[in-house]
């Protein structure tokens, strides 16, 4: 039905082609076969590029070990200091052993968000399967850390002793629900943001050739949509960083709840 809708739109608009979702298709890189679990696909390609960029940013740039840093080394040091300070400020000093994993998440998300902004790129973080794995991993890890560090005391996270006694069971229920919604919102926030921006850019891009179909309408719509693409693109550059930041800081917040469950 959705296909019919897409095709209906195609014909109804007199030749405009709307395929905002085609950019998210997973394709095998070699051949046309089905996509199996281990097939080398465009996902593999862009994740490999992400790894290369992370290596270039953090490993190659710092290979000089210069006391007075160059441009690239400054970026590496800034990223390091930024995430380390975030972990320390939000989750506390005892969260520092988990710093490498949080840094991994941040570097992966921020680099793939920015790579996804390249024209014709595939945005790995726009797929719920990808973000859900990261969010569920964080959720499971945080829950396990909480129970290992505090035992049953971790359940004190849901039993708010500052509230009046009759309210506590209700609050506990709300807290439990919000605790289990965490991985859902954590993953959908990132994937939804990335998908939304890219889809909106594609929709505006589909409007740009209108001038070739109808000059009268197109003379208004085409420049407007080009401006809109540029504006949304600028917003997406911002969003790409902010969503990586938000994903990381929420990981730190959840980690803080696991390490210090008593408010």
């Amino acid at each position: 039905m959705a296909t019919e809708a897409a095709h209906g739109a195609e014909h109804g608009e007199g030749g405009l082609v709307f395929h905002p979702m085609d950019q998210f298709i997973v394709k095998p890189l070699f051949g046309d076969g089905p996509v199996g679990t281990f097939t080398v696909t465009n996902v593999t390609l862009w994740m490999a590029l992400t790894v290369l960029c992370v290596i270039g940013l953090l490993v190659l740039s710092s290979s000089g070990r210069a006391t007075v840093p160059g441009r690239m080394q400054s970026i590496a040091e800034l990223a390091y200091g930024f995430i380390r300070k975030m972990v320390e400020d939000v989750a506390g000093k005892d969260a520092l052993p988990y710093f490498p994993y949080i840094m991994t998440l941040f570097m992966f998300i921020v680099v793939s968000n920015f790579l996804g902004l390249l024209p014709l790129a595939f945005t790995t973080t726009s797929h719920i399967a990808v973000t859900a794995v990261m969010a569920v991993a964080v959720f499971v890890a945080v829950t396990v850390i909480g129970f290992v560090k505090h035992g049953a005391g971790f359940l004190g996270l849901f039993w708010i002793s500052a509230a009046p006694l009759p309210l506590r069971p209700i609050l506990a229920l709300i807290e439990v629900i919000s605790y289990f919604v965490r991985p859902v919102s954590h993953s959908i926030r990132l994937a939804g943001n990335m998908m939304a921006g890219h889809a909106v850019i594609k929709v505006f891009a589909a409007f740009t050739p209108l001038i070739t179909i109808s000059v009268g309408v197109g003379i208004l719509v085409t420049p407007l949509s080009i401006v809109a693409i540029s504006a949304i693109y600028a917003l997406e550059v911002l969003v790409a960083f902010i969503q990586a930041y938000v994903f990381t800081i929420l990981t730190c917040v959840y980690l803080k709840d696991a390490l210090h469950p008593h408010h």
Binding site: M86, S185, N193, V246
Partner: peptide
């Protein structure tokens, strides 16, 4: 940081409706 967390929470709901 707190502000960004607040933004993230309220923005997530908008993203849900978009979804």
């Amino acid at each position: 940081a707190t502000m960004f967390i607040g933004i993230a929470f309220s923005e997530a709901l908008g993203i849900f409706s978009f979804l």
